[in-house]
Nucleic acid binder design. Sequence first.
DNA 1: GGAAATGATTCCGA
DNA 2: TCGGAATCATTTCC
Length: 341
Amino acid sequence: MDDQPRLMHAHAAVGMSGHPGLSQHIQDNTGATDGDGRKQDIGDILQQIMTITDQSLDEAQARKHALNCHRMKPALFNVLCDVKEKTVLSIRGAQEEESPDAQLMRLDNMLLAEGVSGPEKGGGAAAAAAAAAASAGVGADNATEHSDYRAKLTQIRQIYHTELEKYEQACNEFTTHVMNLLREQSRTRPISPKEIERMVNIIHRKFSSIQMQLKQSTCEAFMILRSRFLDARRKRRNFNKQATEILNEYFYSHLSNPYPSEEAKEELAKKCSITMSQVSNWFGNKRIRYKKNIGKFQEEANIYAARTAVSAASVSAHGSQTNSPSTPNSAAMRTYDHRLQ
DNA sequence: GGAAATGATTCCGA
DNA sequence: TCGGAATCATTTCC
């Protein structure tokens, strides 16, 4: 609180003796070239301002009122504002003018894209749909997980908006308070509307930085949620028995070349209700594990070979003469075994 | 509870 | 871009 008197003293002092151009300034601003009378007025006003803090509250209030009504007050106020503008505020320089923050823009864009900010309709639906597609084949759990994801996204969204509203409210309240304070003080201190506006901008920037932290936290929360949802390893399910059998049948019946074509992968994916990449993964794993331990898989290979042989024989017996690639072929098995060694 | 099995991911080379 | 290899993370089995 005692900054105010000090400032007043300082400016008054500058006005009276420290600033050689003040008299000229006043003359320029008022057009008063006629004289000692007005200089005397100004001297009186400055003297009253300087001594105002020595008085009781009531006296000071009365003095303030008298000063505000003084005919020279507007001119003196303009001059002091001008002096202050040139001496104090110029130090701050142009550095206050900042370019739009790229990071803030990135955060805003991300929050908008993911449906956290902006209109709620379908917010995050795209992400949820993508996530659901990524985990295709998991089956009935999908719907549950999807709604779980959306519920958590909504929760993040709600927290974000609540906090954002709080910050905005606080910002508005604080800004109004500061503006009122400065307007009130501008009755006795050289505070121009421009300076009030600058102060408001400073407050907004401070609150913006707080908002940026909020946005950053929201983005992080969202990223964690999504990575958990999308990370298939966290919710891996073994394929069902039927799917595994279909894949094994294909593998052992094509042992000479266990590399299904795109069409074959697509068909297998359909049959097993899994994605093509899951088929690729399965064959990748199977080949490497078979190669690593042929002995262990030999029994399994025999079982599937026998089963396929029976099936082929049955087809053959029905007069359906085919040369299907799924025909059991122990020679082929030996070929792949050989290739792998 | 620990080992084995299994599906997914990552890195690297052809 | 695809496949091999290593590895991770989870599930299943004992």
